[in-house]
Write a protein that binds this DNA or RNA. Sequence first.
DNA 1: TGCTTGACATAAT
DNA 2: CATTATGCCAAGC
Length: 110
Amino acid sequence: MRVSRTRIRERIYSIVRRIPRGRVATYGQVAQLAGLPGHARQVGYALADLSEDDCVPWHRVLNAQGRVSLRSEPGWDDVQRQLLVREGVEFDAAGRTSLARFQWRGPRRR
DNA sequence: TGCTTGACATAAT
DNA sequence: CATTATGCCAAGC
């Protein structure tokens, strides 16, 4: 049975919850930390499906380019950016952050 | 059961 | 450095 498919999202939540404040992670990184290499897309799926009361810092998850992934509505990316800025994450004019400095180096690096 | 879509990643141009 | 093309795997229909 290995991974009960539907549990995949819950694994992802567990990882995202471990992201410390003022630190960010990429989808691919979260997927790998969750023990699901290559499931970067599923990470986005899982986050899109969670509720606001799940206590999951979804806003700390960025794409591999260090940018905020657009969800569906315009302007949402701006909100996410503000949340991170409030935690101490810096963004440049291009709306990117230095993954080299702010990426969360979890239990293991890629 | 099979095709389409998706909050991605990586390589090529 | 921006855009395009291809690969990836699970969920929805």
